[in-house]
Design a binder for these strands. Structure first.
Lengths: 140, 140
DNA sequence: GCTATAATCAGAAATGATTTTCATTTAGAC
DNA sequence: GTCTAAATGAAAATCATTTCTGATTATAGC
């Protein structure tokens, strides 16, 4: 796990610092999305101390590179998630337990066509996110 | 315009106060999405003074009732928009000039089916927003 | 292995949009 | 007009996030 993150970071021309690796490890070990502060606390538990600004900075960088996913949440705080699935897709996020599941659905082609043809505009990015309650939370 | 907003507010059991009407008027007169502070400044220009918290409060309430649209923006600030179109739909928002255009596309049925069948979860809400540059901004 | 150096980091402090508090006012029902 | 819940304003607080600055460190090239 460690080694592959190391490689991934080098490919992206990011130095494989202990802090970065620790951040990735924390998120890879979690099945839910976390706030920067939560990542920071979990790092300390694993005895990797880091400054909170460092965590914020790295989470932002890593999500900008596509290594992490930034979750857009109704409460407008920052949440990050490590999604091993590397092809373009969207997520179903559970509002109760914060679990994330991949959706196969993505309307990009349809959207892109509509924006080009009807609006004559250009799509820069699109956001499709589905909020709800997962199987486990519904059950219990 | 004034009269119809008045009616709309009453239907929603919200008092038709001067501030609320002024907020709605400002947004209805704009073709772009505004921050709460911008709404507040435009109110003053029209000589309706209001406290900034009142503007924040009302924008939030009005978007919760569906009278206004809250724009989810990459910069994570609050933006509101008055969209006269009342049926369920999504938006293409221009990152350059802040214009908003309606999209006919909405994947809700497909999403809902996928979440129910594959994930056995329940959808609470969904967010589809498309960011880009509109016809005018591309031209000029 | 050693060095240079650009990237990265920590800690403290600042930021600034948004929210809370609470005393006062007002819209709408009767 | 009177009453009451809702709405408001002003000031202050909040608090997640960012900036700043001076160390520290990972990595590439020798």
């Amino acid at each position: 796990m460690d080694i592959s993150f190391d490689k991934r970071l080098r490919e992206l021309k990011l130095k494989a610092t202990p802090k970065r690796l620790a951040i990735l490890e924390v998120l890879a070990d979690e099945s839910i999305y976390l706030t920067p502060e939560e990542v920071w606390k979990r790092m300390r538990r694993k005895s990797t101390r880091a400054g909170l600004p460092t965590v914020y900075r790295n989470l932002e960088e890593l999500s900008a590179c596509g290594v992490l996913i930034k979750i857009v949440h109704p409460d407008r705080r920052l949440y990050y998630y490590f999604c091993p699935n590397s092809h373009h897709h969207h997520h179903f996020v559970c509002l109760s337990c914060r679990r994330v599941e991949d959706l196969s659905f993505c309307g990009l082609e349809v959207i892109d066509r509509e924006v080009k043809k009807s609006l004559k505009g250009a799509v820069v990015s699109h956001l499709v996110q589905v909020y709800g309650h997962c199987k486990e939370c519904l059950a219990g």
